[in-house]
């Protein structure tokens, strides 16, 4: 199971506004749709994916007279992280139906793992607040545990399978709210389920 947009934070709003703001501070007006398209990726990869979009790449060249480079990605991320951390706790309410469903599945003997595009530092806030509100999977992992290789790579799912002692990917179901969640599931060889209402992908 994914976190923001799936288990907590209806609409996946915590990161969206921060992405728009950091680009605005850099002199670039990006749309909500552009800010949402790479959602689910590790956040620094998300920034790079936005800069790679043809329209944003050309805005960047107009503003700076050159193409963006990795240093620019890191500078934007250095602004992103503290700005996200400021508001993250406010976006940890469970999405309707999640707590009951997790409980029902657990009662049937299923194990509930989780993956995310947030880092460990971000997840400390999300997990501790979600727990207070009744939301608790059996395991959570971030790309910090997979050499910062997040979605669409499948490794976080494999960390869950290892921890929860699951025998085969085809017995695992991945639930998420973004395109990168679906790709992660496909790449891991698990069943992928997209949840629509409350998703980032719904816009």
């Amino acid at each position: 199971m994914d976190w923001a947009g799936t288990a907590v934070d209806f609409g996946c709003f915590a990161p969206v506004n921060v992405f728009v703001d950091i680009f605005k501070n850099a002199g670039l007006e990006v749309t909500m749709e552009e800010a949402r398209a790479p959602m689910g990726m590790l956040k620094i990869d998300h920034i790079r994916a936005m800069l790679t979009m043809p329209r944003i790449s050309s805005l960047w060249r107009e503003e700076y007279g050159r193409s963006f480079n990795e240093e620019d990605v890191e500078k934007l991320y250095a602004e992103f992280e503290p700005a996200l951390m400021m508001s993250l706790a406010d976006y940890t309410d469970p999405i309707p139906g999640v707590i009951e469903t997790v409980e029902a599945l657990r009662n049937r003997g299923l194990k509930i793992g989780s993956t995310t595009g947030y880092t460990d530092t971000m997840m400390d806030v999300v997990v501790s607040n979600a727990l207070k509100k009744g939301n608790q999977p059996d395991f959570h992992v971030t790309p910090d545990a997979t050499h910062s290789i997040g979605r669409p790579y499948p490794y976080m799912i494999y960390r869950n399978m290892e921890e929860l002692k699951l025998s085969a990917s085809w017995k695992v179901v991945k639930v998420g709210d973004t395109i990168s969640d679906m790709q992660e599931g496909v790449n891991a060889g698990v069943w992928s389920v997209g949840v629509i209402v409350g998703s980032s992908e719904m816009g």
Binding site: M182, G185, V186, S192, V193, G194, V195, I196, V197
Partner: peptide
């Protein structure tokens, strides 16, 4: 993008 299924809500 490769989903096997979609659902409206977690229910």
């Amino acid at each position: 993008n490769g989903a096997d299924f979609t659902i409206k809500t977690m229910n």
